[in-house]
Design a protein around this nucleic acid. Structure first.
Lengths: 225, 225
DNA sequence: AATTTGGCTGAGAAAAGTCTCAGAAAGGTC
DNA sequence: GACCTTTCTGAGACTTTTCTCAGCCAAATT
């Protein structure tokens, strides 16, 4: 578990970081709002611990900015006083939880775990086309419900086709997108890989979804075609 | 919004009920643990407010029972004292939030709304996947009911996989989340630890749940796969 | 029907990725 | 400080994949 700690008091930040480490929670520190925003955007954290009192801009502002930047990582805010309005404000602004100073690591850790447990909503990512199913996140591919094993290159190629089924792609376009602009070899490699794919997704199922468009390129048949 | 209030002190319960009503939050009351359990099971509430001090059985027990009964309605616990252990205990046992008496309606309402906004998704602290069981709080791991001893690093790695079973993680992602962004060593360390884990969770059970996705990363097999 | 052009395929070399082991370094405990 | 566990490093063996090449085949053109 990985946490971003936005806290300007260096000694406190270090203390917290150590406390979390004892629970094998890794913590990165940011010592002001700007840095916090930057790091939150960069790395993917499981949660963010955010102090309200920061130099320059307040924790409220940072929290708001984060949400505006479409960063939905769970946020735990640290409030200095027991002020109830502060707490209500934090929650209303998009924080998920808050903690009043002083607090113990025991509580902080428990809260963080509770936050992470809740998690962010998982996004479904499966692409369908014809009798094909591709899940880029799980890196799985099925045809007629049957699991198909693809190499990284094959997968990337099929993904290109499945994201725009029915569309014709030239070999050069495929080269650029699947192999990269700096690829130096021959276009023939595309033919080779189209062949590999056909052997895996067409032949075993007695179909020909991956079609050649002579002189132009290749295309994946859509459901409707 | 509909809330279940489990609180034995009738006067306090009524006071809270009225306070909530002013915010147009409807509250049902239960005056002991049994009744609370029964009502929680029966009606579908948006949240449950649960006092720790109850006659007969404590709020902790009620909370635990609720979770064991697979009722995942958000629970806000009321603690009488400021004891931190009490708070930590509440959260660990499956509560989503707590509030120390005395409190104001302002806070109670804000907290309830925050809880409900989060939705009814809190899962149990123990994570399951296949025949694996992981309890991040107790730092325990079981496979087919058998206790397995993991080092801190192994545990963190397995936790990453179990939080998103089936998903493929690149070595770089694993490095970032389990080792930290500032880790300087080679990616090979991931391979080594995957090896360690396999020796503990796969080999003894004649399975291969922790899979290599060549050129991409690693993934933990899901139940369904 | 012959020719030209573009596409397909199999074999094998080259590269990349993964696993494993032994041992060094670091950290904790008595 | 001695001992034990955990964590990390690096090298080599091994596996899979990626790529190249050359010859073959098929469609389009003459």
């Amino acid at each position: 578990m990985r946490v971003l700690l936005i806290e300007d008091e260096v000694t406190l930040a270090e203390a917290i970081r150590n406390g979390l480490q004892a629970e094998s929670i890794a913590a990165d520190c940011a010592y002001n709002g700007e840095e916090g925003l930057f790091k939150a955007r960069e790395g993917s954290y499981d949660a963010i611990v955010l102090d309200i009192l920061l130099p320059g801009r307040t924790g409220y502002e940072v929290c708001k900015k984060l949400r505006e930047a479409h960063i939905w990582t769970p946020i735990l805010m640290l409030t200095a006083h027991h002020g109830e309005e502060a707490e209500a404000k934090a929650l209303n602004i998009g924080a998920d939880d808050f903690l009043s100073k002083p607090f113990s690591y025991l509580v902080l850790v428990a809260r963080l775990r509770a936050l992470v447990r809740r998690g962010v909503s998982p996004r479904p990512t499966v692409i369908y086309s014809g009798n094909l199913e591709l899940d880029p996140l799980r890196r799985t591919c099925r045809c007629q419900g049957q699991e198909i094993n693809l190499t990284a290159r094959e997968f990337a190629l099929l993904e290109l086709f499945m994201r725009r089924p029915g569309e014709v792609f030239s070999k050069q376009h495929i080269l650029d997108h699947v192999w990269g602009f700096d690829f130096e070899g021959d276009e023939n490699i595309v033919e080779v890989y189209v062949g590999y794919l056909r052997r895996k997704i067409d032949e075993p199922f007695g179909q020909r979804a991956l079609q050649t468009v002579r002189g132009v390129g290749y295309r994946l048949l859509r459901n409707e075609d």
